[in-house]
């Protein structure tokens, strides 16, 4: 165990109070260690839920940065504002598509403010996930839902971009709608899945289940141990097992 003298520390400022905390801590664990308990502003603690967004500045540096508190390491002179709640603009939709509309216009009509983007790049600069937010806003504007889906795919909806947008765009919600409309109306649908569903609906496996359910545990274990393993390099839909009694 390190003695207190050898622990390197930094000073961070939270809610106007300065705390001396060990380096090698995330902002979240450092603040918890000094006795701050969070209800809001904490979520998965793994960088995927976007609950612990903070804005911060370091020392006299003029740059305002955004981060997730559970991911960002403490820095000396860090001054921190957590974002517990953000008034979002979210346009309701039922994932429906009237005949007169296309998916890209549908999205654009729900979030027309993307057209007001002044291309300042603040959203992209701030994004803690490294997403080119301004890039996908442009794609929504141009009707490229596929591009917007791909670029926004890892968005954790932390709202840092929306908070600072001078055009008042709700980027994460526009992206959410773009992804769903792209997946529903533009991405290829899984045909093999329809076949699997047909077989289930025609009760093709009922007899098989009755047979399996009649086996005692030893027989079941033997069957389990005899399973053929699909090779890892098999392309889906090409390999078939020797024993097809279970198909």
């Amino acid at each position: 165990m390190d003695s207190l003298e050898t622990v390197k520390t930094v000073d961070i400022i939270y809610d106007d109070v300065s705390y001396c905390v060990p380096v090698d801590r995330t902002v979240l664990s450092a603040l918890e260690e000094v006795g701050i308990h969070f209800i809001r502003s904490v979520g998965c603690r793994g960088g995927v839920c976007g609950a612990c967004t903070i804005l911060y500045r370091v020392g006299s540096d003029y740059t305002l940065k955004a981060a997730l508190m559970c991911q960002e390491m403490v820095q000396d002179g860090m001054s921190i504002l957590p974002l517990p709640f953000f008034p979002q603009r979210k346009q309701p939709h039922r994932l429906d598509l009237p005949e007169s509309e296309t998916p890209d216009y549908r999205v654009l009509n729900h979030y027309p403010e993307v057209n007001g983007c002044i291309m300042c790049g603040e959203c992209t600069r701030l994004c803690p996930m490294g997403i080119d937010v301004m890039g996908y806003v442009g794609m929504v504007k141009r009707g490229d839902l596929r591009g917007a889906s791909e670029e926004s795919f890892t968005c954790v909806q932390c709202q840092a971009c929306a908070l600072r947008c001078p055009a008042q765009i709700s980027q994460p919600n526009a992206a959410m709608m773009a992804r769903r409309y792209h997946a529903r109306y533009q991405a290829p649908q899984a045909e093999h899945l329809s076949k699997a569903i047909e077989r289930i609906e025609s009760k093709a496996f009922d007899a098989g289940f009755r047979r399996l359910r009649r086996l005692d545990e030893d027989e079941l274990r033997a069957l389990y141990q005899r399973r053929e393993r699909e090779p890892t390099d098999a392309h889906p839909g090409t390999w078939l097992p020797e024993d097809r009694s279970m198909l």
């Binding site: 994932l95 992804r179 997946a183 529903r184 899984a190 045909e191 093999h192 899945l193 699997a196 889906p236």
Partner: peptide
């Protein structure tokens, strides 16, 4: 399979080949 189709219809993205077949 029913649930997977339901998710697909809800506009959930899956890793797919260009034919629509799901990657597994």
């Amino acid at each position: 399979p029913l649930v997977l189709r339901w998710l697909e219809e809800q506009g959930m993205q899956f890793d797919k080949y260009p034919t629509g077949r799901m990657k597994v």
